[in-house]
């Protein structure tokens, strides 16, 4: 009965339960899809340390790498404390 009234008064669009389902699915899939196994994240971290250490001296213990999803987009967020620049590269210019 309530449904019928709502339909009569045209409130349906936003209330349609399929739209609720879609929205919930969209959000849950963003999360599901970005879950990366800790093992892979760890090996990504190690590789990053390897590459970055060629150019910069970094604090390996303070390094943080995470996937984050905000408002619909997914990003790899890394916080990498730099201890010092390597002299050879700093001087190259």
């Amino acid at each position: 009965m309530l449904e019928l009234l709502q339909r009569l008064f045209g409130r349906e669009e936003a209330d349609k339960s399929k739209n609720v389902a879609k929205e919930r699915l969209r959000l849950v899939l963003v999360q599901d899809r970005c879950s990366i196994s800790p093992h892979i994240l760890e090996s990504l971290k190690e590789d990053m340390i390897g590459v970055i250490s060629k150019y910069l001296e970094i604090d390996e213990k303070g390094l943080e790498v995470n996937l984050s999803n905000e408002d619909n987009y997914l990003a790899l967020v890394a916080s990498i404390p730099i201890l010092r620049m390597k002299r050879t590269y700093a001087e190259e210019k």
Partner: peptide, 16 residues
Amino acid sequence: MVKQGNMMDIDDIIDI
């Protein structure tokens, strides 16, 4: 139910 908007339609699912 799809017609009433109470079930996801084919396109909705394919989109996702």
